[in-house]
């Protein structure tokens, strides 16, 4: 019984990382209408950024967010300007197709660049408090995992507040709904696209940092994280940006359950099955409308 609960609890913790990672992908897809399959590579870069800041500067991985976040945001601005901005003027369908090509290429370059510079060695961030935690009825709650969960909640609340209650956020939502009408109101949508892409990559950066304190990682983890983000976005429904968080938790739980029943090796299969089932039964997603 304890094992089951323990697995589910860990599933939730991991799911929260899926949630914040997918949120970034969903935001970019919802506003810019382009699919960035290099999203997972940005997660990977976030993890390495955290690692090098920890190893090189001795800064606590959770504190490293103060550096990693602006870094990733800036990286998003650069890649948007270089690669994705030229796509935004295309028709929706052509845009999606071209964004797949561009971001797939970008993902390969980032992955191989990471391999070249940082080698393929598996890295992990081992803090002095890594093993600490408390215990409720035999179920362990490590402090790092709790901090991870709390940070995702804070990040999601901050993003929600930004989108819901600020002038910039309303402009982002208006652009997502109808960029022409938004333009007429005086919104420079190129600027909105730029900032939104930066925010999306920053979300990947948060996921990367939290991943670094949870798992070991290598340059090739990007693909799996893109896949998980895509699964979560489809689970949530493509129109539902904040549905990504509960959907992420759900994926984490589903993987935990599958680890208990059919074995950890088939964890990835369960996510894909969930993905197919939702597409068949409820194509608008669990939290989508229409």
């Amino acid at each position: 019984m304890q094992t089951i609960i323990q697995n589910l609890v860990f599933g939730l913790f991991v799911g929260s990382i899926y949630g914040i990672g997918a949120l970034g992908l969903s935001l970019v897809f919802g506003v810019l209408k382009l699919l960035n399959v290099a999203h997972g590579e940005f997660v990977m870069i976030g993890a390495y950024a955290c690692y090098w800041i920890f190893v090189g500067l001795g800064i606590d991985p959770f504190l490293s967010l103060v550096i990693v976040l602006p870094l990733m945001f800036g990286l998003g601005l650069i890649f948007n300007t270089l690669l994705f901005e030229p796509l935004t003027r295309l028709e929706t369908e052509t845009k999606i197709r071209n964004s797949l090509l561009v971001s797939f290429g970008l993902g390969l370059v980032l992955q191989n660049g990471a391999q070249l510079w940082w080698t393929g060695d598996e890295r992990s961030v081992q803090t002095s408090y890594a093993g600490l935690g408390f215990n409720i009825g035999g179920v362990v709650f490590p402090y790092t995992r709790l901090a991870t969960f709390a940070l995702t909640l804070i990040a999601i609340f901050a993003l929600w507040f930004l989108l819901q209650h600020t002038r910039l956020g309303k402009a982002i939502r208006a652009t997502a709904e109808d960029w022409e009408a938004a333009t007429q109101a005086g919104i420079n949508i190129r600027w909105i696209y730029l900032v939104t892409f930066g925010l999306g990559v920053a979300c990947a950066g948060i996921a990367g940092v939290l991943l670094a304190v949870t798992f070991g990682f290598q340059p090739n983890i990007g693909f799996v994280w893109t896949l998980k983000a895509l699964i979560v976005v489809v689970l949530a429904g493509t129109g539902s940006v904040f549905g990504a968080f509960p959907a992420g938790l759900l994926l984490g739980l589903a993987e935990a359950v599958s680890g208990l029943t059919i074995g950890a090796d088939y964890r990835e299969v369960v996510g894909l099955l969930l993905f197919l089932t939702v597409l068949l039964v409820r194509p608008q997603g669990l939290f989508g409308k229409e």
Partner: peptide, 23 residues
């Protein structure tokens, strides 16, 4: 615009606030 082109998922007030975005 033709067909109104409102921001359907935003409230009435938010639509007006977006309308008032310009300097």
């Amino acid at each position: 615009p033709e067909g109104r082109r409102l921001f359907g998922g935003m409230t009435v007030l938010e639509n007006l606030q977006v309308g008032a975005y310009s300097e």
